[in-house]
């Protein structure tokens, strides 16, 4: 029983990390139809910002999430205006390639600035809370989960209750109809991109005490975000939560209960679920703002 409890705690903690990691990616894909291949690199930039704050000012990564959010959001707003907006009406491959280019630029730019050395951020929120001799809660990951849930609730409220949020959802559902009723699509997209990059930066700050920070950490994170989003539904806040938690718990259970190759199986699991979901339920396990099928946008 203690093993199961620990696996569940590990899974929920991992799910929390996936949740904050996937939110920005999911909304950008769902609303704008852009597969942000530079997602992992924006996570990395957020992680570096938190690391710099820690090195220079001694700030804990959990204390800098708001500044990191605004810096990345401003960057996202500008990037959307000067770059993404220009290719958004083109075939999906164009935006895919553009974001891929951005990812390469960011990797090398960050390497120039910070070198390729691995960094690790310190937080006072580390260690473990022991529930029993064989069950403990990892403090850092638990705090990441709390922040991720707070961001999730705030995002949900923003999308459901504010005029801008409703505009974002409208733009996701039918771009032309949204234009016809007077919604400034470019502005909506810029806000969406800014918001999502802000959240992605927060993800970077939060995972900086968990994973090593280095310029080339992005691609595996992008891949994970892609798998969770396509599996659970594009642009769906609830879907992101469900997908992240389902995957986190399945991975943790497989890793703990399967001997020798459990952790390997856990990594494969996300892609098995992804393939199954795409074939059997292309709108995502939890339903999204749009189907994965690009031609339907």
């Amino acid at each position: 029983m203690s093993t199961f409890s620990q696996a569940l705690i590990n899974g929920i903690a991992l799910g929390g990390m996936y949740l904050i990691l996937v939110l920005g990616f999911s909304i950008i894909w769902g609303v704008m139809g852009v597969i942000n291949l530079a997602h992992g690199e924006f996570v990395m930039v957020g992680a570096y910002l938190a690391w710099v704050a820690n090195e220079w000012l001694g700030s804990d990564p959990f204390l800098v999430v708001l500044p990191v959010f605004f810096i990345l959001a401003a960057f996202g707003f500008v990037l959307q205006r000067i770059l993404v907006n220009r290719v958004i009406d083109r075939p999906h491959l164009v935006s895919l390639l553009v974001m891929f280019g951005v990812s390469i630029i960011l990797q090398n730019a960050m390497k120039l600035i910070f070198s390729a050395d691995f960094r690790r951020n310190d937080t006072v929120l580390d260690g473990a809370w022991s529930l029993s001799e064989r069950v403990s809660i990892p403090v850092t990951k638990f705090m990441v989960l709390l922040v991720a849930l707070a961001v999730l609730v705030a995002l949900h409220q923003f999308l459901q209750r504010t005029r801008t949020g409703k505009s974002i959802r409208a733009a996701a559902q039918n771009r032309e109809a949204a234009r016809i009723v007077g919604i400034d699509i470019n502005k909506v997209y810029a806000i969406t991109f800014a918001l999502c990059l802000g959240m992605t930066g927060v993800a970077g700050a939060l995972i900086s005490p968990i994973l090593s920070v280095q310029p080339f950490q992005g691609p595996p994170l992008t891949l994970k975000a892609f798998a969770i989003t396509a599996m659970s539904g594009l642009g769906s806040v609830k879907g992101a939560l469900g997908g992240a938690m389902v995957l986190g718990i399945i991975e943790a259970m497989l890793a703990l209960y399967v001997d020798k190759i459990g952790t390997n199986l856990a990594v494969v699991a996300s892609f098995v679920i992804l393939v199954a979901a795409l074939v059997l339920r292309p709108q995502g396990l939890f339903g999204g703002l749009r189907p994965v099928d690009a031609t339907a946008s």
């Binding site: 590990n10 903690a13 890793a255 020798k260 952790t263 390997n264 990594v267």
Partner: peptide, 20 residues
């Protein structure tokens, strides 16, 4: 004995097994 893939991001399960 446990194995894990390249670019692993979480080794909690491995360390849980080891701890137990």
């Amino acid at each position: 004995v446990e194995t894990y893939p390249k670019d692993i991001q979480d080794v909690s399960a491995i360390m849980t097994k080891a701890r137990d």
